[in-house]
């Protein structure tokens, strides 16, 4: 992922430089919006750019899924969300272990009670 991120950075760094150098901020902003519209219409097709966009969209979708699963995840950022997921996983594991122990103990109690009752 680091290598792919580096390549994406290098590729993206080249387009904005001429716009900033040639024109002012307002015109640059307009051109950027136009470029996005063109991408949305799919008039300009670039496989590399599409692949990168798909990867990023996948990651974002997965982050949203985690936010829905983890309690209180929608209001958190990426860092906090990862922390909450880790702590939530640990809590669930502890609960499962505790319930297993309780079930085994209760089953033994039932057996003893039946013996005395019978």
């Amino acid at each position: 992922m680091e290598k792919t991120l580096a390549t994406s950075h290098t590729k993206r760094s080249s387009p904005p430089s001429p716009s900033s150098a040639v024109n002012t901020s307002s015109t640059g902003f307009n051109r950027r919006t136009r470029q996005r519209l063109s991408d949305a219409t799919a008039s300009v097709s670039e496989t590399d750019v599409e692949d990168e966009d798909e990867d990023e969209e996948g990651v974002e979708e997965k982050i949203e899924a985690l936010q829905t699963i983890v309690p209180g995840g929608t209001e958190l950022g990426v860092d906090a969300l990862f922390e909450e997921t880790a702590s939530y996983i640990l809590a669930l594991q502890c609960q499962i272990n505790a319930i297993k122990v309780l079930t085994t103990f209760l089953e033994r109690c039932e057996k003893k009670d039946m013996k005395f009752g019978g």
């Binding site: 990867d55 990651v59 985690l66 997921t85 996983i89 609960q95």
Partner: peptide, 23 residues
């Protein structure tokens, strides 16, 4: 990969929640 790690985390969380309900 980040995407694969996130996918597995989501699946694992779901499985844990189901186990808790059954228990």
């Amino acid at each position: 990969d980040k995407a694969s790690i996130l996918d597995e985390a989501i699946d694992y969380l779901k499985s844990l929640q189901l186990q808790l309900q059954v228990m």
